[in-house]
Write a protein that binds this DNA or RNA. Sequence first.
DNA 1: ATGGCAGGTTATACCTGA
Length: 263
Amino acid sequence: MRIVTWNINSVRLRLPLVLRLLQEMQPDVLCLQETKALVDVFPTGPLAEAGWSHQLVAGMKGYNGVAILSRLPIEETVSREFCGRTDARHVAARIDGGPEVHNFYVPAGGDVPDPAVNDKFAHKLDFLAEMTQWLGTERSPDHPMILVGDLNIAPLETDVWSHKQLLNVVSHTPVEVEALDKVQASAGWIDAVRKIVPPEERLYSWWSYRAKDWSAADKGRRLDHVWVTPPLDGGIRHAEVIRDARGWEKASDHAPVVVDLDL
DNA sequence: ATGGCAGGTTATACCTGA
């Protein structure tokens, strides 16, 4: 099974890029974040015609929004609300005869890494705590599951261009990394990408739009993740960031992350 | 040297991203 996660930063604006990725990578499942589209304007038709006709979409106007596109039928779907908000940051579906897939868009957290003065950062930490609580109580590590998404945290030193310079920058602060570690421990989640790409090796999935030359500067962060529960651990075959897609015309600031699994 | 950009919105300024 091939699964891809991609923060698309507007699915309507970048529909041609999504179709290109589907053609080139032929994933079984594609999980999107930041679709920025209400369900009724989501491009269901063109994506179904391309072959990904089984879709689970959660959306709101202007912000957030997540979707699971599958070639195989999906069942037992759920879109959970976190922090008491209806803000389209999670969908989950069981792939027919396969694992349960959770797709998350964790809040970015604003600028100041202090929950006392920055409500967005407080929301991010609350969201992560609620994820930990929910995944830990509702789901067993014995259950074959995949968790993907834009988790908006780069946990390892090699997940950012400069560990020192980003220690106090939202996305790489110790308090966020600790919170993410707790999420990971909630159901024995294993970082599938780091099983393939050694932790000593630098790896990013996001590069700012603001750089003059994003690739030359290469000041990236690995914010997008693919995790699996222990039953799927032995089946991790391949993982990569499609860095090339960051250079496509009218690109998202995130690149897709691909993982191949034997189920 | 992070913010210099980018997307969406009852737009033409402001919020959000990270």
